[in-house]
């Protein structure tokens, strides 16, 4: 399984904090995003937001980054700490 988590405004817009996909359903971060939208068409406009960031296993990555079983994939808005 691939564990997927959402943070902050994204989590509130989706009305969902986490999700799971089988590792056979996506091989990159971009494919994870596409699969989530395919399974939840109401999420499409939210995931089309270009500024969304992604991380795999706590490292910021781009869409081409490979994912495998056991990975933790996170999607979130640009950060605003400090």
């Amino acid at each position: 399984m691939i564990k997927i988590i959402f943070f902050a405004a994204l989590r509130e817009q989706l009305g969902c904090g986490d999700y799971q996909l089988s590792a056979t359903e996506a091989s990159t971060v971009a494919e994870v995003k596409a699969k989530l939208v395919a399974l939840n068409p109401q999420w499409q406009s939210t995931f089309e937001n270009q500024s969304l960031l992604s991380a795999v296993n706590h490292d910021m990555v781009s869409g081409e980054h490979k994912v495998k079983a056991g990975d933790e994939v996170a999607f979130f808005p640009p950060v605003t700490g400090g």
Partner: peptide
């Protein structure tokens, strides 16, 4: 450290 924390560390303010 502050400048990079602002743009890289995953914190969000409401």
């Amino acid at each position: 450290i502050m400048d990079y924390l602002k743009v890289q560390a995953p914190f969000w303010k409401k």
